[in-house]
Write a protein that binds this DNA or RNA. Structure first.
Length: 504
DNA sequence: ATGTTC
């Protein structure tokens, strides 16, 4: 039985009761007042109109379930691109008090997701579209250099000791191995490295990692050469060196099979530690109840909680190194084709599937939290100590991929202070059609032709991935950005359109 | 998301 099937047979939902507890906040969000087992209110970045469009999506039920997690604080959030996921909806943000109860509040693999440290890196080129002599040729060269798809071929040749270095050292280790510049590091979330104490990855997880460094993966992962279409915030764009007509490269990838293996093993182990108790699930060692077995969790300070945190951080480090390796491969092509390699500077690199220990103000008091962001981008204010001082007067760049036909956005966190969603923002447009439904209804070949007619070069490993990832399979990214902005989570800086799309 | 089923 795979994870999805295991989940489907064992989860338990609270149904549609939440609709009776729903109220509009008229600030780009709606609130579900705590009821039943909920310990906190839930907030969805949406409005009546937007919510009605996705009435079939069971994400809000999952958010209600998450609001009963042990040690949860503040509110359980869903970003504007939310949709149904494993346990917690994609777009979910939950924070638990690491010091709640005897061993601390919950840390949950399902609250992070399978692709640990899936994230986005943007490189800013010192070039415009007119500087590319032959975009078709460039697209072909990039597609030839960047392995994409589920084949698992084309990873960089590394030794087991290289892999161990990467798991503990992240992007720094990738730079040491010759993949990427060390000057990029200050523009990566957490410097491209999360602290690990005692990572114990399985042989299988490591085997999957050995083959995958420098590969894009499939599904919604991509590499795009993009063009800044419009600047919405002149001052911020100028400070970041962005201008209309400029070329960017956006890399969207994660920890590949290694992270998937880590999530599978920990969620499986924890799920087995919960037994049915009425319509909930119970672990008597920790006296923890969860509404959905897919939200199986351990206390933050328990052996199991700390081991997940360590292994997750190791997988996150692999993902940072993977995006470094992908950027390195891209720079090699740009050098060859355009002679502009080293000038492709890293604007930023940010995770959108991760749990991090952060301090946040809860009811007027500082609280150390395990912030789970699952399909949610960190969006820190400029005064947060972790950020490169370059972002002090703007806030952190928030990189939001849209879909391959419409465009993407670069936003910014607040100039100072933290937003109300634990310093988080949306991570994309959000799916509106399931992969299965998209495959059935969208003709991949016709879509490729349509995109190419509108000036977008598309390289995809299979026609199916085009159907699954078609613009029509996604929500309207501009509407998602507008709601995010209205809720005060992040502010739009620039809208970006694709020129070359490489997809798995 | 995923060597797309342990």
């Amino acid at each position: 039985m795979n994870n999805a099937q295991r989940g489907l047979t064992q989860h338990m939902y609270m149904g549609e009761d939440w609709r009776e507890h729903l109220q509009s906040e008229n600030d780009g969000t709606m609130r579900i007042k705590a009821h039943g087992d909920m310990k906190v209110d839930a907030r969805i970045v949406t409005d009546q109109n937007h919510l009605a469009k996705y009435a079939d999506d069971r994400g809000p039920e999952q958010l209600v379930n998450a609001a009963s997690l042990p040690g949860i604080v503040g509110e359980a959030w869903a970003m504007a691109d939310w949709h149904f996921g494993y346990g917690l909806p994609i777009g979910g943000v939950i924070a638990t008090d690491t010091e709640a109860g005897e061993l601390g509040g919950a840390i949950s693999p399902g609250g992070v997701g399978f692709d640990i440290n899936c994230g986005v890196r943007v490189l800013a080129l010192e070039a415009t579209i007119d500087d590319i002599p032959n975009i078709k040729k460039l697209g072909g060269r990039i597609a030839g250099r960047i392995p994409a798809g589920a084949s698992g071929k084309g990873g960089l040749d590394i030794s087991m000791s290289d892999l161990d270095e990467i798991i503990s050292g992240g992007a720094q280790s990738a730079a040491d191995l010759g993949f990427g510049h060390s000057k990029d590091l200050e523009n990566l979330e957490s410097g491209g490295r999360l602290e690990t104490n005692n990572v114990e990855l399985s042989t299988r997880a490591k085997e999957r990692g050995m083959r995958a460094l420098g590969t894009l993966g499939s599904g919604n992962h991509f590499l795009e050469i993009q063009c800044v279409e419009s600047v919405e915030d002149n001052e911020t764009a100028k400070h970041w060196g962005l201008y209309e007509g400029q070329l960017l490269a956006m890399i969207h990838s994660g920890s590949r099979g290694l992270g998937h293996q880590v999530c599978s093993e920990h969620s499986r182990k924890l799920e087995q530690m919960y037994k049915r108790d009425g319509n909930r699930w119970y672990n008597e060692n920790w006296d923890f109840h969860v509404a959905d077995r897919q939200l199986a969790c351990a206390p933050f300070h328990s052996k199991e909680g700390q081991q997940y945190l360590d292994d997750m951080n190791g997988a996150a480090n692999f993902a940072f190194a993977n995006r470094s390796a992908l950027a390195h491969r891209l720079r090699e092509v740009l050098t060859l084709e355009m002679g502009i390699d080293g000038e492709a500077k890293t604007l930023y690199d940010v995770a959108h599937n991760i749990a991090k220990v952060e301090t946040h103000m809860i009811h007027g008091k500082n609280c150390q939290c395990a912030v789970h962001r699952k399909g949610a981008t960190r969006a820190f204010g400029g005064d947060q100590l972790e950020l490169n001082s370059h972002f002090k007067i703007t806030g952190q760049p928030v990189l939001v991929p849209g879909d391959m036909g419409t465009g993407s956005w670069i936003m910014s966190g607040p100039i100072s202070g933290q937003n109300q969603a634990f310093g988080s923002s949306c991570h994309g447009a959000g799916r509106s059609l399931s992969r299965t439904k998209a495959k059935k209804t969208i003709d991949g070949k016709a879509l490729k032709q349509k995109l190419e007619n509108s000036g977008i070069r598309v390289h995809a490993s299979t026609p199916n991935v085009l159907s699954e990832e078609a613009p029509d399979a996604y929500k309207d990214v501009d509407e998602v950005i507008e709601l995010t902005s209205k809720a005060g989570l992040a502010r739009p800086v620039a809208r970006i359109i694709p020129k070359v799309v490489v997809k798995g």
